[in-house]
Each structure stands twice: as structure tokens, then as C-alpha cells.
Simulated assay, not measured.
Amino acid sequence: MKSFWKNSEALSARLAASSKLLVTLDFDGTLAALAETPGQARLEPALRCVLTALAVCPGVFVFILSGRALPGLRRLVGLSGLYYGGNHGMEIKGPGFSWRDERAVKAKRLVAGIASDLKKRFQPGTGVLVENKIFSASVHYRNLKAAYERGFFSSMKALMAVRSANFYWRSGNMVFELLPHGAVHKGDAVAMLARCLEATGNIAVGDDLTDEDMFSALAGRGVTVRVGRVSGSKAGYFLSGQAEVLRLLRFVAAARDL
């Protein structure tokens, strides 16, 4: 990966040259700093302001693509004129666009049952938070209490070792995610929306393992940026940390003469 800022002149020209630019952004750890619990995450006013400006810029489409469930993501960001992707792209809504992955829809009832079992297994007092996100489930352990660490990781290892025809587990930043086999991921989602919008240019920014899917999908045909320098990332460029995301979005706006 290269430093985004050390290559800013060439990147500015590249972003300006696209007649239709799709700007894809992860939420947690990218647009918003990682919080103790998902419910505590907040979008700072300055970021909200620049997203609003980009959304009304001719030839620019803003796509917030998150592992969160779509309704909660839309409430949290609260801006019109944007495209939103929930559950890593299994559900997408935006101006004149609405789509759901039918494979994920069919798994909804099974997800609810598994999430219910997980909540019984990992009680609130352990510091573990289980989320039923309708089409997927998450097990957050950012606040896991030391006394329960051995039991928690032992349980998760056993769960992840079980082969299933319907689901698979994936690890992220202090989270384990249960995802339906065959459902779309972030790479599929950004590629699909780019085709539908006939985007001629892409910039995608993310900080976690699931964002690597969109970096791979846009390899050679988009600007891909990882928040934090990580060995082995498929992103072409990196930012030092989440605090630089606002600067990057202002940079994109300036490249588009906003």
C-alpha cells in the first residue's frame, strides 16, 4: 500500500476525470470512530456536512456500505440522496434503487433462531453483545470481561468448527459474524451498484476485513483506501487513521470543484 497523501496530486486528477464517480464508504471505523457498542457510534457534524455536499454534486454518487442492518444504518446517517448498503450489501436502497439478496432473505428465519440461541449462550453479564441483523448475526466482544475470555473463545472456536450448508463465520474487528453461504459481500455490492449507475470511476474506503472484498473487486479500476496500514491488504492506498477520513472526503470534494 502507498500513502494516500504522498500520491494526492495524481489521485486528484484521477478523481476529477471521472464523469460519474461512485464514492463507497464503510461506516464503523471509517466514517465513525469505533465505539464501545454499535449503539454508541456517531457521525460527526463535519462529516455529515461534507457527505451532504458530495451527495448533491453532479456526477457523484455516495454509497454507505456497512455490516449494520439497513434500517439502523439509514437512521444513524440520516441523510437523503445517498445510497445505503446494509448487511455488507445484502440489502441496498437509494434514489430510484432498491434491492435485496434473495438468498439472504430465505435465511432470515434461520438467522433469528441462531441469534436467539447465541443470546442464551452469551449472557449480557459477560460483556458479549449478540446482534440479530435480520439477514446475518454478529457477536461483538469488545467489552468481553476477562473472567469469561477462555469460555467465550472456546465456545466460538467450537461454533466456527461446525460445517453448515447454510452459514459460515467470519471474524472482524472485535466481532464474529454469521453470514449466509452464497449471499453477496461488499465486493459484489459495490460492483453491482457501479454497473447500475454506470460509474466511470470509483473510490472506496474501509478499515476492516470485510472491506477487503470491495478492495479486491475494484483492483485496477478504482482508488481503494484502507484506514490504517495493514500488511497484506488489497487496498492500493492507506490513511494513518480514522481521523483522516474527513480530510479525504474534503479532498474528493475539492477534486470535483465543490
Score class of each variant (00 low, 15 high):
114 I>Q: 04
129 L>S: 02
121 R>D: 08
157 K>M: 04
112 A>I: 04
117 D>A: 15
141 Y>L: 01
132 N>G: 06
156 M>D: 07
156 M>C: 12
145 K>V: 05
118 L>R: 00
126 T>I: 05
145 K>L: 13
106 K>S: 13
146 A>Y: 10
135 F>C: 14
108 K>D: 09
108 K>I: 06
110 L>Q: 13
131 E>H: 11
156 M>Y: 06
156 M>Q: 08
136 S>K: 11
142 R>A: 11
138 S>M: 09
125 G>P: 03
129 L>N: 01
150 R>C: 06
130 V>M: 11
115 A>K: 12
119 K>H: 07
123 Q>R: 15
107 A>H: 10
111 V>D: 04
106 K>W: 03
112 A>S: 14
140 H>I: 05
157 K>Y: 03
153 F>H: 14
157 K>S: 12
129 L>C: 04
151 G>L: 01
157 K>G: 09
126 T>R: 14
142 R>Y: 11
119 K>W: 03
105 V>I: 12
118 L>H: 01
141 Y>S: 07
110 L>C: 08
136 S>M: 12
141 Y>A: 10
127 G>R: 09
124 P>S: 10
156 M>L: 11
155 S>Y: 02
149 E>C: 13
130 V>A: 12
122 F>W: 09
130 V>N: 00
138 S>I: 07
143 N>L: 15
141 Y>V: 05
123 Q>K: 15
130 V>K: 01
138 S>A: 15
150 R>I: 02
137 A>C: 12
145 K>H: 13
152 F>C: 06
142 R>I: 06
155 S>H: 07
146 A>V: 07
110 L>A: 15
111 V>S: 08
148 Y>S: 13
134 I>T: 13
142 R>D: 10
122 F>D: 00
155 S>L: 03
156 M>P: 02
125 G>I: 04
129 L>R: 04
138 S>D: 14
118 L>D: 00
119 K>R: 15
128 V>Q: 00
125 G>D: 14
114 I>M: 05
127 G>L: 09
143 N>H: 10
155 S>W: 02
150 R>P: 01
143 N>A: 15
112 A>V: 06
136 S>P: 14
105 V>T: 10
113 G>V: 05
120 K>N: 12
137 A>D: 01
135 F>Q: 14
136 S>W: 08
136 S>H: 11
143 N>F: 04
148 Y>R: 11
133 K>Y: 07
124 P>Y: 04
151 G>C: 06
157 K>R: 14
143 N>W: 03
152 F>K: 02
123 Q>V: 10
156 M>E: 07
119 K>P: 02
147 A>F: 04
133 K>C: 07
106 K>M: 09
132 N>R: 10
